[in-house]
Write a protein that binds this DNA or RNA. Structure first.
Lengths: 263, 263
DNA sequence: GTTAGTGTTCTGCTGTGCCGAACATCGTTC
DNA sequence: GAACGATGTTCGGCACAGCAGAACACTAAC
């Protein structure tokens, strides 16, 4: 190969492949993946995949379960994820506040940090109810379909919204998803007025979210959100929940040394 | 080198080093590590460490923060940890039960799986109070100083206790830590009679834990535990909490298809 | 018994990942 | 402001690590 043109000259190929294996296994089926399946996805020879998997098993990143053997995510991933979560100062501050908010509202509550304008959830407190939402941590969510995303955007200049809109293309998740930059900006004006953002089945049918941004000394740092099923939420109840989320976000702002933004 | 004698013949050295870097960064200080610090710990050349770090940054396992740059745990670790936690069926079953138990007792509650006799905590629900314990997930805890560990041991043959005792050497964590296999076995007899295990400042001063094992069709699968500060826990209160933890563990057993073991 | 699918082991060649040295930037200190 | 001692970054060249491929062992299906 004529040497890779990019800055990827310093990439270590075997490590890249190893990380691919970790991702495959972590995102794979609950019962685990076979070596053959991993080999096929990697596109390498069986022996190469075997060496990588063995190395990852030794490191605890991957667990071999008999019979098969099939490969599942290892305990080291749990440990590292927990350590990484704790290393994010925001998470430590948010957690007790999320607990209180979940208790107060009966909903699943989450905290997202602002990552270049995108919301990335880093903490979650599940609702006591039986309903569990698919709310993965550590991934960039769509800014225009999540209440946390819109709460963050509302605190940033309009230019950012336009930039993210071109980057993501505003994918349509449900029939209610905002389709245009104009609609989105109009919604953000409402958010600023109210002090909290709504996601009314804009990301998933039947799912309702309320989000509010929090701030540190440098501006918007992230957002809290509360998630529940739509059902029969009265306008009064929405306003009540909005105020609760708003108040919780203000508590975070104060702990971060920023200024709360309750209108 | 005369070719490694062990089964580690299939180890990929560069991947091992990359995983070392991840561990270093994840366990490192909150402000992050510099490349030089990583290089020193690895014992490789600077350029090698640089290539590994760059590869990990691209994969999201490590995050470069200016100025410095300093390297911190990346969001991908959060994502993978969350995914790994969800892939453990036990965690999904335990979580709502831990929530209820935490709510009922006001304590921090956790669930451990039985890993070759050792307790490995995989889920945690923090207490609403301000007190936060250092309770990392995904690591093997000492069997003889944790209530979950003793609850598990009590459900296994005495031979296992003896084996683990020789493996760990029964390290003394506090003045109250059980020192001998005899003391431990005597305590385990009490656990079996009561149905729950106690850790009365045996792992950390001022910390009190109550644990109870749960079972699947194949026998003991793990244990739940509730953690609080010792303070003025009356015997009545301990019995009350013990019954609550015991009942919660029974709920887990039933969901796992095992038989509850309330005495 | 045969086949098709697993996982594991081995060997030899090639290319990659390593080192070392040079270069670029910061801050400090004199 | 020059000189220093730290950093992080880039480069080239060589040895050997890591790859592919083939052979082997084992299971389940039919």
């Amino acid at each position: 190969m004529i040497a890779n043109r990019r800055g990827d000259r310093y990439r270590v190929a075997s490590v890249v492949r190893a990380l691919q294996v970790v991702t495959l296994v972590a995102d794979g089926p609950l019962e685990g993946l076979t070596l053959s399946a991993i080999t096929r996805s990697l596109g390498t020879s069986k022996s190469t995949a075997y060496a990588l998997v063995r190395t990852l098993v030794e490191g605890g990143y991957v667990r071999a379960v008999d019979p098969g053997p099939r490969y599942q995510p290892g305990m080291e991933l749990v440990r590292l994820g927990d350590a990484a979560t704790r290393s994010i100062p925001l998470g430590r501050i948010c957690h007790p506040i999320l607990l209180d908010l979940s208790r107060e509202t009966g909903l699943t509550t989450r905290a997202a940090i602002c990552d270049d304008g995108y919301p990335v959830f880093v903490e979650r407190v599940d609702s006591p109810g039986a309903i569990r939402f698919h709310t993965p941590l550590g991934v960039r969510e769509l800014p225009h379909t999540s209440s946390a995303g819109k709460a963050i955007l509302a605190a940033l200049p309009a230019g950012v919204t336009e930039r993210l809109a071109t980057e993501t293309g505003l994918p349509e998740r449900t029939a209610k998803t905002l389709q245009t930059v104009g609609d989105l900006l109009a919604d953000l004006a409402d958010v600023r007025r109210r002090g909290y953002a709504l996601d009314d089945e804009e990301d998933a049918p039947g799912v309702f979210c309320i989000g509010a941004a929090f701030f540190d000394h440098g501006g918007v740092a992230g957002a809290l959100s509360a998630t529940g099923i739509k059902l029969d939420l009265s306008p009064d109840r929405v306003a009540e929940l909005g105020a609760a989320v708003r108040a919780a976000a203000d508590r975070v702002s104060i702990e971060l040394g920023g200024t709360p933004r309750t209108p």
